[in-house]
Amino acid sequence: MAVAELTSRGDVTIKNLSKSYSINGRHLNVLQGVSNHIRAGESLAIVGASGSGKTTLLRVLAGLEDADRGEVLIDGQAVHGVGKDRAVIFQEPRLLPWLTVLDNVAFPLENRGLKKAEARARARHYVQLVGLGEFTEALPSQLSGGMAQRVGIARALAVKPEILLLDEPFGALDAMTKITMQEELARIWREEKVTMILVTHDLEEAVYLADRVLILGKEKGGRTREIDVDLPRPRNRSEAGFVKLREQLLNEFGLH
């Protein structure tokens, strides 16, 4: 009973979202009537060519931007603005350079009214979870790109969000670090049981991490398509089913 209650949190409904920008007098439709439903605890990857509005969609979900039309419901409630049910992992680590690793992770917790000692204790747990237990007192400038991004992940997890929003989180990392981080994220996602919405341009990453891949179309009236990733976890990048799905995704973009 309690388990059912827990897993029912973090359910996201996207209803007919539209948004357009005006750039130098040119009208640009970025999102055109996007609808979707993400079950609590599900992992959804959003892919699309650049300009397909995938980052805009994520920013609307995060509450950083408003849509022109349509709405986002979380557990049945319409959302406006940022909220503590959601945490964002940005493409850049976005750490405060004057705070230590530990204080960076504790920052959101203090904002949400936790006492300093309590916030630091919880932050310490999550810094250890991402494997940086020895670097709690380091400054961001002393970390490598991969380490800094781990701190960003720890910061997002420490607020215990229902929904984790990731905006091309490993786009700036080298190939080796990227794979390690994806494996770690997959492990953490299983352990923390959060809903995960991941924007990426890396199709392999999408297949590796997601239960379902949403493809945003670019061209006017471009339809959104979906592909289910029905593969056992932990996933194996060289296994036949994996390779086939990645090919199928490539074909969606007219690539081989």
Binding site: V82, A87, V88, L96, F107, N111, R155, V159
Partner: peptide
């Protein structure tokens, strides 16, 4: 501005953004 956006996402009110992001930066 990306740091300010991060602070907002993570629950910082205006005064906190000023005190803990703008001022030290």
């Amino acid at each position: 501005p990306k740091l300010i956006e991060m602070a907002r996402v993570y629950g910082a009110k205006r005064l906190t953004v000023f005190r803990r992001v703008v001022l030290p930066a």
